[in-house]
């Protein structure tokens, strides 16, 4: 057996871990630099760049919009996804595999193409509002996460428990709400969290669906970076990392972080 105290293995692993962590650590340091451009190591210490983040209207409104779209898209994906996974796992459906592929098909289309195609079909052809189109795009991003995670836990369920409830006179919907749903609770939370964070961080889908009053946070940062090179971006990065860390703590507290790694396509 190759042991963890193998010197070659330790050396390679530590170098690779350093490569993964050090750059993020460096961003944190540069966010506190007092120079007008980004220095590393920093010259002086200041919090002014964090204040500057909140002085950028695009960042503040972008955060609100990204947060809103991520919550709505994840909820929508669950609302559509859970019933269809229930149908796929509990009923004998002809060509069930084709349905599985159909519901995972958003992963087969590059995200930038989803945004591009939605812009042409929904915004230009059907004249739908940008916000609706944006929501649709993010819903498509979230649906595969929901389908994969919920299918994994739904197939593990013992269907006889639900059947027992029917025999004792419980209605289908009541049995689903009080028995099936609570027993897949943790994968619902996991699916919501993964959907939320992926939607919140997504750039390619939102790229074509930006408007004068509609900015998502990641695309706002991208635009800011085209014209500026100052520690404001470091500061907003630090805030985003704190946000990620907070979500991870929440997930760990409620369902354990392992639930997130169960998603394997």
């Amino acid at each position: 057996m190759i042991k963890t105290n193998n010197k070659v293995l330790i050396t390679i692993s530590c170098v690779v871990l350093f490569f993964l962590i050090a750059p993020l650590f460096m961003i944190v340091v540069t966010a506190f630099g007092s120079g007008a451009t980004i220095d590393f190591p920093i010259q002086g210490f200041t919090f002014k760049w964090f204040a500057n983040v909140f002085a950028q209207p695009d960042f503040v409104s972008g955060f609100e919009m990204s947060f809103l779209v991520a919550i709505l898209a994840s909820a929508l994906a669950l609302l559509v996804g859970v019933p269809l996974v229930y149908a796929l796992t509990h009923y004998h459906i002809h060509h069930q595999q084709w349905f599985q592929v159909l519901f995972l098909s958003p992963t087969f289309i590059p995200e930038i193409v989803i945004g591009f195609a939605l812009y042409q079909a929904m915004v230009i052809l059907f004249q739908l509002p940008l916000l609706v189109t944006l929501l649709v795009g993010h819903f498509l991003l979230c649906l595969p996460y929901v389908v994969r995670l919920i299918t994994a836990s739904m197939t593990m369920l013992d269907v006889h428990v639900e059947e027992a409830a029917w025999i004792y006179g419980s209605s289908r919907i009541h049995a689903f709400l009080t028995i099936t749903l609570p027993s897949i609770r943790s994968s619902i939370v996991a699916a919501f969290m993964l959907s939320f964070i992926n939607s919140f961080n997504n750039i390619p889908i939102s790229l074509f669906l930006n408007g004068p009053n509609l900015n998502m946070l990641p695309t706002s940062i991208l635009n800011y970076l085209q014209n500026n090179y100052d520690p404001t971006v470091s500061a907003v990065s630090v805030l985003l990392m704190l946000f990620t860390a907070m979500l991870m703590i929440l997930v760990e507290h409620f369902i354990g972080l392992n639930a997130l790694s169960k998603d394997r396509s």
Partner: peptide
């Protein structure tokens, strides 16, 4: 695993920005 998961959940702009620096 947390150390590996953290970058996955962090925004891609942040992770690319560090290489600009």
């Amino acid at each position: 695993s947390v150390v590996i998961l953290f970058p996955i959940l962090t925004n891609a702009v942040v992770r690319n920005f560090t290489w600009i620096i």
